[in-house]
Design a protein around this nucleic acid. Sequence first.
DNA 1: CTAGGGTTAG
Length: 641
Amino acid sequence: MTVKPSQNPRISTRLLQLKTPKTEPTTTPTTSSPWNTRLRELANQSLFTEALSVYREMLRFGASPNAFTFPFALKSCAALSLPFVGSQLHCHVIRSGCDPEPFVLTSLISMYCKCALIDSARKVFDENTQSMKLSVCYNALLSGYVLNVRYCDAFMLFRKMRELGVEINAVTMLGLIPACAGPGYFWLGTFMHCCCVKSGLDVDLSVANCLVTMYMKCGSVDYGRRLFNEIPDKGLITWNAMISGYAQNGLATHVLALYREMKTCGVLPDAVTFVGVLSSVSHLGARSVGCEVEQQIAANGFGRNPFLSNALINMYARCGNLKKARAIFDCMPVKSVVSWTAIIGGYGMHGRGEVAAQLFDEMIRSGVRPDSTAFVSVLSACSHAGLSDKGSNYFAAMEKQYGLQPGPEHYSCMVDLLGRAGQLNEAWELIKSMRVKPDGAVWGALLGACKIHKNVELAEIAFEKVIDLEPTNIGYYVLLSNLYSVAKNLEGVSRVRVMMRERNLKKDPGCSYVELKGRVHLFLAGDRSHYQTVEIYKMLDELENLFEELGGSNRIDREKRSEEKHSAGMAMHSEKLAIAFGLLNTSPGTEIVVIKNLRICGDCHLFMKMVSKIVDRQFVVRDATRFHHFKNGFCSCKDYW
DNA sequence: CTAGGGTTAG
C-alpha cells in the first residue's frame, strides 16, 4: 500500500492536533531552533507523544519546521506507529523544501518502514535518493525490508549496493544480519559473518554482538559461543546476547554459569540480563535462586519493567508459588497477551484448570486478543484438569472467532485432553481429521494416553507413526516398552529393546536435580563423580535394606534391579541419587525439592513414598520434562551455584 | 540508518 501525503496543509495540521493533547506554552518563540531543541530532547528520551505535541505547538505559533525538526518528529511517528500522522509530516517536508536533505529522507524512509508501509518508503527512496548513492538511505531501506520480513528484497538491495559501490558500513550489517537469524538460516549467517570479516567490520562491537545473537537464534550455540569467546572487549550487551541466547536454546545451566562468570568479570547486570536468568531459573525450578535475583531486581529499580514482570510471573508459577505470581500479575498496569499467557499457564501446570479458563475469559473481556500461544496454554490447562468440554470449546473458538489456524501444538493438547479422558478413539479421529501434518508430539500424546489407559493395540499404531517422525527420541521407545511390561507382554518388551539396539539408541542416562540451600545439584543415572558418592551409595544401600526389613513392599523394585543388572549400561536411578544426597544434607522435617523428568520416569514417587515412611522428610517434585538439554555437554555432578 | 529482552505442550 502506498499512502499519499495529503496535499491540503490545513487538513494535515488539524490531524496532528487531533492526535495530541493541548498544552499551554510557556514561551512562544517563532524561530524554530528552541522548538527543535525541545523536540530532539523528548524524542531522545523516548517521550514520543510529548515530542509530537511540541511539533504541533510549533506549528500553532508559526515557527517553520526545518531539516532539524523533521527527523525527530518522524522518529516519534515511527515509534508510535502513526502512519497517517507520518504522511502528514511527509507533506510538511515537501512544502518546506527539505526533501533533498539526507537526514530527512532517511527518517522518512525509516518512518514508513516502521509503519509497515514499505511501498511508500520505496517510493521516497526511488524518487529522491538513488542518484546520491548515500549509504544512510540504502541502510534505512535495507533494515526496513528486514523489519518487514522481506529478506529477498533486502539481499537484492545489498547486492545492488555492492554493484554500485555504495559504502557498506557497520550499520548496513546491523540491518542485514538479523535476516539470517532463524532456524535454518545458519549458512546464510556464516556467509554474512565472512562478509563482515572480509570488510573488517567484525571488529565493530555492535556487529560482533549482532552476529552472536544471529548464531544463537539459528540454534548454532557452539558458533555463538566461539565468537563470544573471541570478542576481546565484551560489553554488557555482549554478555546479554550470550545469556539470552542460551536461555532461548533451553540451556538453563549454561545461563546460570555464564551469569556467574559475568559477575566475576565485574560486569553489572541490567534488566535484560535478569530476563534471561529468570527464565532459566524457572526452568530449573530453583526457587531460592529466583528469589535472590528478584531482590537484585528490586534493588536495581527494574521492578516496573514489563518484560521482567512476565519473567517473574513465570518463575514463581513454575517454582510453585502461584500466589506471588498472581500478585505480580495483578500489579501490572498494562497486561500484554504474554502476561496473560504466563499466568494462565501457571494455573494450568498446577492443575487449576478452572481458574486458568476464567482468566482466559477475563483476558478476552479486557480486550486482549489471544494469540496462538495463549491458546496452547489454556488448552493444556484444560487437559491437565480434565476439562474436556471447555477445552473443546476453546479449540473450536480458536478458528471460528479468532481466525487462528490450529497448529500441531494445539492438536497435541487436544489429543492429550481427549486421551486422558479415555476417549482414545475420538483422539485418533481428531488426528485423522487434521489439515496440517501431525508431528511427533501429536502421535506422542496419543501414545502417552494409550499408556495411561493400557491400550496396546492403538499404542502400536501411534508408536509406528511417532518413530517414523522422531526415530531417535528414546522417550517413545521407553513409553511403549513400559506399556508392554505393564500388559505383561514380554515379547513386546524385548522387541522394543531389539529395535533400540539395532538403531544404536542408548537410553541417555536419566537425570535429576536437587535444590539445596539455593544451589542446584545435578545427578545422572549411575553417576559416581559427585563428591559425596560414597556416602550416597551407602545411604541407598541402607535404605534398600530397611525396605526389605519392612517386608515385601520392595519386591517389584528388587525384580527391576536384577533386570537392570542384566541389561548393560543401566545404573542406579538418578532420582535415587538425588534423593539420597538430599537426605544426607538436610535435617529431619525439611522439604526436599527434586526436579525430575516426570513423563518418562514414573517410579520416582514410589521410591519417595517409601522413603517418607521411614524418615521424616517431605518431597516436592517438579517436572523437568523440557530440560533434556542438560544431558548434552554440561553435565557432571557440578554444583552450579 | 544502528547490537541484547517476556509467553506454549509431550
